[in-house]
Structure formats: C-alpha cells, structure tokens
Design a protein around this nucleic acid. Structure first.
Lengths: 244, 244
DNA sequence: CGCGACCTTGAAGAACGTCAATGGTCGTGG
DNA sequence: CCACGACCATTGACGTTCTTCAAGGTCGCG
C-alpha cells in the first residue's frame, strides 16, 4: 500500500477527541480505492444510494444542492482528512451532492468495511458520531451567518473558519492558507452573488484585513478578521484551541 | 410513573427506522425529571455544559443563537417526541441555546442514563445517531432555503416541513396543523423580519395557498404550497412517505 | 379598563442582485 | 512565438427585495 492514506484522518480525529493506539492502528489498516477527481467532478449525486464513503486525500471538495433557476447552495467545504459523506452509512439516499472544487484525490471506503470497523472499535464509532455532530454544528453556524450577518461578516467568518480548521490539522500557518476556490464558490456558500463577493473582498483588502487572491487567503489582521466575522471557534468543538 | 412519557419518542424513532420489541421496552423504562417551561424560557443556554438531554412532551421548543445587535437565528423547531439536544451527549459545551416557544413540557434524562441505554441497546444507538444525522440534513435544507430562496419560498417550505413532520408522528391532519409560534419566530427562523413575513403571509393567504393565524397552519392548496416552497420531503429521510 | 403581545400597513432607504462590458491569466495549439 | 479561448476577477449603472422607521389596530388578560 502507498504511504498510509488515513494519516490525516487520524490527525483530524485527534483534533476532536482521543484515539487509542489500537484504534489508530485499525485506521491505518483501512483499505479503499483511490480516485482522482477533475475540478467540478462529482463523487456522489443527490438521490444516489452509495455503498461507500469518501475520505479526502488532497484538494477541496464541497457538498451542494441545486435549486430553482440554476441556483446552487454550497453547504460545506472539505479538506484532506475529512469524510464528507459519512452520513451515507445510515441514510440510504443522498439529500445533496458531493463534488470536487479543484483537482482532488479521494479514497473510497466501502460501507461494509466501515461497519466492520465500527463493530470492532466502538471508540472510533463515537468519534465518527462526534464528527457528524460537529458537522451539524458547523451547519448551524453557517445558517446563522447566512440568515443574520451581512456579506462582509459572512466572508470574514468563512475565512476564519477555514483558517482555523486547516491549522488544526497542520495544513495552514498563521497568516497564509491555501483555499483553492473561486469567488463564485464563496458566493454559493454564503448565499451571495460572485459580483457582490468581489466588491466586499475589495473592501476587506483595502482595509488591510484580509486578502483573497488565486485561491490563497492572506490574513493581514487576525483580530480584525475575527471581529468582522464575529468569529468564535467554540462551534468547531476542537480539543486544542490555538491562540493566533 | 405517569403514562409512558416516551410514547412519542418511540413513534418518532419508528418513523425514521426500525425498533425491536426489546428496544421499545427499554425506552418505555426510561426515567427522567419532568419540567414545565414558560414561553420564552430556556432549558439550556449557549456555553452550558449540561448533564442531561431534553425529551419534548408537549408544546414547541426551538434552538437558537444570538448574534450582533440583538439579532437571533432560530435553527430548528421541535415538537413532542424530539430530543433537540441529543448532541450534548458527545459535545461538552452547547454551541447554541434551547428554549420553549410556548408553554411546553419536557422530561430531562440524565446523560448517564442514556449512555447506559446505548451500551445495552446498540440498535437504539444507531437510531439516535440516525436522528442526529437527519437533524443535520434538515439544517442543510434550511441553509439552502435561507441562502437561495426568496421569502415566499422559505415560508412555504417551512410550512411544508412542519406539516409533514407533524403528520409523521400523528400530530396533524391533512389540512390543519397546530404550530403555536409567532410571525417573529418564523422571521428569526428564515432570516427575515417579522414585517416582511407578515406581508408575504398576506400574499399567500390572498392567493388561497395557505393561512397562518393564531398559531395554526391551514393548508388551502397542498400542491401549490409544495410548489411555492420547492418542497421535496426526501431530506427528512422518513421511512413512510405520505401522499397528501 | 388598560396594558402587553402580536399583527398590519405605509413610506423611505439600504443591501444586494442583475445586466453588461472589460481585462487578466493560463494552457493549448497553430 | 503568438493567437485564441476558457475561466475568473473587476467595475459601472440600474433594479429589486427586503429592512427600517413609524403608526395604528386587535385581542386576551390581569
């Protein structure tokens, strides 16, 4: 087998809870099928009844739904170590799609394999459950953003979240963070138009708070960014909280 | 013990999955502390670290967060049979509050008791997990509504959802549905102002689609309502789907 | 009776969307 | 090497949806 593909999954689970040595070993022994995704390519579509789950290796994936008039709502972004469709283990049909934002690599793990794993390792089961609960917590926070914050707040909040999550698994440093998505993706995630996102980004840039260019977030003023987004990382339920 | 307080919980679990006779009996034997809630009273606050979960007996509860300038986002409504804060079993601190919308009755069940139950009955564990996953699915749908649908669609969608959920546990008939909440609650759930909700309700009423008065939804045209809200119940992941 | 909670309506304004045009960058192929 | 198209970012002018502010109106209840 290639270098253990579950390394970042392990890191992620350790960031939200405690993993025993045995459970860690079980995760290392996981097997699955690698797959490369082109930008925009979907792994699972709304309505599908998949028999495997997706572990992200590299790149960025997102969950989304299409609504009337070609509109799209992105419900989450996922980075290496995430299992964005874990819920398909217990829900026959997908209520949303899962696709790649940029070229990405994933490993597909059969439900059967995961179920056996959960039977052998209840500890992993609880961590997986906890992971889906954190997922739900993030949805609640996004709902709050979209429902009750203005465009500037929403964008600042999203950037804070992504930087914090990527730091937690060692994928970002303090000031920079690779998030290879377009302004249109940001817009679809926040219930805005790409044009308005562009304008607000310009404003944030001119005020020396944050820059977003070519898929890279550059934080110029972390305090200011948190303030602008009313960001409090509690909802991410991370074990370790970093001071910036 | 009073008439079994878990009757509606059992009904709800049966609406989303299969419950063995033994598991059903275990649920009947659950014990907890009754509590009455005044309108607006909270059971748990954001930041709390509760050691029990809340089973709704009657009335309506909602989960919510407060953001800047006194704004509020309601993230879900809960009716008899729901356990709105089940996630607190695996997440130390609450990332949102849970409160009563109208006078309600709840039963508080200690985490310890639930944990023992889950150890004895893995089947109930999976159903509970599934319930929290459906919760997340509903969040995704709300996010989509708030982000990408206009006010009329959002309201129609919410009404469709509540009628469908209440029918599923026998709390509503085809045309009427008791939902004792105010227009302000609706507004806070959908990311609107109460004033705008009022205007849109007037419009829906005049077009003979749906009426909402004194906390009662009266569906005048179920087809039209579903269409207006782009409602497809798939995201509720109910076992039994009703044809209206 | 009078107060509070909720609903209703109007007028003015802000935030955001739509339409349209321009320019930059990059990979591809002639 | 340059031309081209695809994709993305940017900017301006103009519309629309929804908000804000303000003023009643209704109903139930102490």
């Amino acid at each position: 087998m290639a270098p253990v593909f579950s390394a970042l999954l392990i890191k992620k689970l350790q960031s939200i809870g405690t993993l025993s040595k045995e459970d860690e070993q079980e995760l290392r022994n996981l097997s699955g099928a690698s797959r490369e995704l082109a930008p925009g390519e979907a792994v699972v579509h709304e309505g599908d009844q998949p028999n495997s789950t997706t572990l992200v290796q590299s790149g960025v994936l997102c969950r989304y739904k299409h609504v009337a008039e070609g509109k799209r709502q992105i419900m989450s972004f996922h980075i290496a170590g995430d299992i964005p469709d874990l819920q398909s283990l217990f829900m026959q049909s997908m209520d949303h799609s899962l696709g790649a934002v940029v070229r990405s690599h994933v490993v597909l793990i059969r439900h059967e394999v995961v179920r056996n794993l959960l039977k052998r390792c209840p500890g992993i089961g609880f961590l997986f459950w906890r992971d889906t609960l954190i997922d739900a917590s993030v949805f609640r926070e996004w709902m709050t953003s979209i429902g009750r914050r203005d465009a500037q707040s929403r964008i600042a909040h999203l950037f804070c979240e992504m930087v914090t999550r990527m730091r937690a698994v060692g994928l970002a440093d303090t000031h920079h963070c690779d998030l290879p998505i377009t302004q249109l993706d940001v817009a679809d995630a926040l219930g805005l138009t790409d044009i308005h996102v562009c304008r607000v980004l310009k404003n944030l840039r001119e005020r020396n708070i944050v820059e977003f260019r070519h898929g890279v977030i550059t934080v110029l003023d972390w305090e200011g960014l948190q303030e602008a987004g009313e960001f409090d990382p509690a909802y991410l339920h991370l074990k370790t909280e970093r001071v910036a």
